[in-house]
């Protein structure tokens, strides 16, 4: 049951992105920025939290979940440390992912070569 909820919510978030891709001239890079920023805003106004409670990874694995984590972190930082906390909180909450992206990204890029498509 848990996995079905994850599958459906995660799948539906991606479907929204696919519809935007197919009906506009926006590129996947635009979609990533739009979804991330939407996640930040929805997280800030408290609309993303219920989705995360309901579907867990179905809501946190899409990039909008990354946005939600950023805004949640920033708000928590602001609560505990004020203005400085607002600057620290977002990146603190997501530091693991960003550091992983930098390290693994670099290593994989160095050890592998792009292959021509067929």
């Amino acid at each position: 049951m848990e996995y079905i909820k994850v599958f459906i919510v995660g799948g539906l978030i991606c479907v929204i992105g696919q519809i935007i891709l197919d009906t506009t001239k926006l590129t996947p890079a635009h979609i990533l920025v739009i979804f991330l920023t939407s996640g930040v805003i929805l997280g800030a106004v408290g609309l993303y939290e219920p989705l995360v409670k309901f579907a867990e990874a179905g809501a946190t694995v899409p990039i909008s979940g990354f946005g939600y984590a950023l805004s949640k972190g920033a708000i928590e930082g602001a609560k505990s440390k004020g203005v400085i906390g607002a600057f620290l909180g977002g990146l603190e909450a997501t530091a693991g992912g960003v550091a992983a992206a930098i390290l693994f990204g670099y290593i994989m890029a160095v050890v592998s070569d792009p292959k021509t498509k067929n």
Binding site: L21, T27, P28, P114, K115, T116, K117
Partner: peptide, 17 residues
């Protein structure tokens, strides 16, 4: 293909449609 793709479009291993 591969030199044009990286200059005008996306990297080869980028998963786009």
């Amino acid at each position: 293909f591969s030199s044009a793709e990286r200059q005008f479009r996306f990297p080869l291993e980028y998963g786009s449609q």
